[in-house]
Simulated scan of single mutants.
Amino acid sequence: MIVLPAGIREAILERAREGTPEEICGVLGGAYDPDGRSRVASQYPAANVAENPRTRYEIEPEQQLAIFDRLEDRGEAIVGFYHSHPRGPDRPSETDAARATWPDRSYVIVSLEPLDVGSWRWRTGGDGADASGDRFEREELVVA
């Protein structure tokens, strides 16, 4: 489960609307629990530097490290990441699964068509969708 404050949800939605037709992205900070309830306390917008930002997202590595330093300075953990799908799907894409690298972290996806905000945890190993067992698992998203 991930708990997302209503104000942060609205800020991410607004940014996704303003960023259309390109995907927006960022990092979520707060209290991280790999097996239970993570709580978002902050969001850190990042520039999308993907070669084709209409269909994928990428956070520039130096900017990502700077965000991680800010999180650490504030005593926050990396809860996960967020990005938008301006034209759907309202779930992780094959590209999202191929590029996921943070086990047990949440990946919040904002879909504008259809409008939805959902969250998935990236799980590695075990039974799953591919030979290695790496997969996204839908998680409950509570707006508080």
Rank of each mutant, 00 (worst) to 15 (best):
G126Y: 08
A31S: 15
T20E: 14
E58T: 04
A100M: 04
Y57I: 01
D96N: 04
S84G: 07
R138H: 07
P45Q: 04
P89N: 07
V49E: 01
I78L: 15
E23C: 01
Q64I: 06
R37W: 08
D127S: 13
R87W: 09
E76P: 07
E23V: 00
R121K: 07
P86E: 11
H83D: 07
A46F: 03
F68I: 11
E113S: 14
T95Q: 03
D96G: 08
W102V: 13
Q63A: 15
E58G: 07
V108L: 13
T101Y: 08
P61V: 09
P103E: 06
E14H: 05
V40C: 10
F136I: 10
G75L: 00
F136A: 04
R91D: 10
D116P: 13
L65H: 10
V108Y: 02
G36M: 09
A47F: 06
P21S: 05
G125M: 09
C25R: 00
L71D: 05
Q63Y: 10
A98K: 12
N52E: 15
E140F: 10
E72V: 13
P21V: 00
S93G: 08
R138C: 02
Y44A: 02
S132H: 11
Q63M: 14
N48Y: 00
P21H: 03
D134Q: 15
R121S: 08
S119M: 07
A100Q: 04
P89D: 10
A66W: 01
S132R: 12
A98Q: 09
Q43V: 10
E140T: 15
R74C: 06
D69M: 09
E22R: 04
D96L: 05
P92H: 06
D69T: 14
T101K: 07
P92R: 05
S119V: 14
W102T: 13
V27G: 06
Y82W: 14
E140K: 15
G80D: 08
S106L: 15
G26Y: 05
N52H: 13
V108I: 12
R56F: 00
R17H: 02
P61M: 06
A66K: 06
I24L: 03
D90L: 05
A66S: 09
I67T: 02
V40E: 09
Y32A: 09
R105D: 02
E51G: 12
E58L: 13
R123Q: 07
A31T: 13
R123T: 08
V117S: 07
I109E: 02
V40Y: 07
V108K: 01
I24Q: 01
H85T: 13
E62T: 08
Y57R: 02
G128E: 03
T55P: 03
E58D: 06
E139P: 08
E94I: 03
